[in-house]
Design a protein around this nucleic acid. Sequence first.
DNA 1: TATTGTTATACTCTATAACTATA
DNA 2: TATAGTTATAGAGTATAACAATA
Lengths: 119, 119
Amino acid sequence: MQRFLHHFSVVSLRPTEYSVLALIAENPGRKQSEIAAALGIQRANFVSLMNDLEGRCLTERRSAPNDRRSHALYLTVSGENLLNHARRAEADFEADCLERLGGARARDQFLALLSRLFS
Amino acid sequence: MQRFLHHFSVVSLRPTEYSVLALIAENPGRKQSEIAAALGIQRANFVSLMNDLEGRCLTERRSAPNDRRSHALYLTVSGENLLNHARRAEADFEADCLERLGGARARDQFLALLSRLFS
DNA sequence: TATTGTTATACTCTATAACTATA
DNA sequence: TATAGTTATAGAGTATAACAATA
């Protein structure tokens, strides 16, 4: 966690915020509840998270065309720009982890063991 | 975490509480601040934890002989009994993890990779 | 002056219930 | 009747500041 925050300090994003931006980028226009559910976040807790991202002008809530209850989520241009910076931060972070583990082979072993443990 | 709580539900102990009981058992008479520091818990947060364990009659705070500021920590007889049950729960939990990982060799690899990642 | 235990406080993460407006 | 977003609230976990008693 400390290392993640170190690498992501340039974009001021926490893990959850990064995952939200990345998921909206790949699924623009989805409902709040869909994005929240996909990340295992309860919709009640997702509201303040989206308020924060919107307050930082990274995301937009537009009214959905079919269902007037829903909010369709989109990234703003600044949101897309920040996401690009964040992706570079993630690449650095992963390279850091890869080096600590001792290479791609060790990383694959590690991920395989993790998935066994949590299956 | 879910699996830990499943195995430890018989003793109603959370990870931190188990580690506190185990550490006091191996170091009876140590000060609150020593036990807290050894577990990386701040002494301010350790107070309510010890209040709870004492309220369940698992630990005792006795006045230290040399330093009247300190509390020397001990397990009660019930505390020792519960710790024995908890140790069986831990053995079950570890056996569960071992089986998921695929044996002792896989576990040793996993722990080696973990220590590389967090070194 | 410094340390021990303590209280108060605050911030994050997570969980549930209930409200509103829509469907 | 059910769903989407929201609000309020509560419980853990963790962090800091400050106080009284003692060293």
